[in-house]
């Protein structure tokens, strides 16, 4: 295969990773949703390209699902939720933007260092894609723990799932059974998330997770 093809695969996978870093420093909910949508579209391109170079047309299904569901449907639904709940203000961060970015960079370095010495990951594409995917997964985790807002936690979680899809499609010939079920599970997960967001709204008139923590049974009794 021409080396240009690898370069293009790397471009898309690297794009997903860069967008994960961009997600980290968004301090408005609406902006974070837009960056997430862009990441999902880049992911769809990456998966589509993998379908082409691996000659696995079935991967296109995964690409289309990523594009339609995560690129458009979910971001639109999230925008709606944000409008209805009136939360398009700034997102409270546990630690500041600069520190978060440094931590993010450290995580990306860590994922590359972890996978670089490993020789057994098949061909070069799979190998480096997995390093990118690990970076996306870790950055998604970081985003989830540095935000108080429930909606941004949802976005962090879905960005983590993007990393998982990137890893699964980078693994040559991994059976589609798994990919469909993975995608299906994400869908369920999102529905559950939606239910929770609304229930949280009903109970507390906010989607700030710190409010929930005041209701801890044990803590109150010990005080």
């Amino acid at each position: 295969m021409p080396s240009l093809w690898f370069d293009i695969a790397h471009l898309f996978a690297g794009g997903v990773l860069v967008l994960s870093l961009v997600l980290l420093y968004q301090d408005r909910v609406t902006a974070a949703i837009n960056v997430f949508a862009l990441q999902a579209i880049t992911l769809a391109l990456s998966v589509g390209w993998q379908a082409f170079i691996q000659s696995e047309p079935l991967l296109l299904v995964t690409a289309l699902m990523a594009l339609a569901v995560k690129g458009f449907v979910i971001p639109m639904a999230l925008h709606r939720i944000v409008r209805r709940l009136d939360v398009h203000r700034e997102v409270e961060q546990v630690i500041g933007g600069g520190a978060t970015m440094l931590a993010g960079l450290a995580l990306v370095a860590l994922s590359i260092l972890l996978l670089q010495p490993v020789s057994g990951a098949g061909d070069v594409v799979a190998h480096e894609d997995i390093a990118f995917a690990l970076g996306v997964v870790l950055l998604g985790l970081l985003m989830m723990i540095t935000r108080y807002n429930a909606v941004t936690q949802v976005i962090g979680f879905m960005s983590l799932e993007n990393g998982l899809i990137l890893a699964a499609t980078g693994a040559r010939g991994m059976p589609l059974v798994v990919e469909i079920s993975v995608a299906f599970s994400i869908l369920i997960a999102f529905i559950v998330f939606g239910v929770f967001v609304f229930r949280i709204r009903e109970r507390f008139d906010t989607v700030d997770v710190t409010v929930l923590e005041r209701f801890r049974g044990e803590r109150r009794e010990q005080g």
Binding site: A133, V137, E161, G163, L164, A171, M174
Partner: peptide, 8 residues
């Protein structure tokens, strides 16, 4: 999610 990554 981490378990999926391990599975891959």
């Amino acid at each position: 999610g981490l378990a999926v990554f391990g599975t891959v």
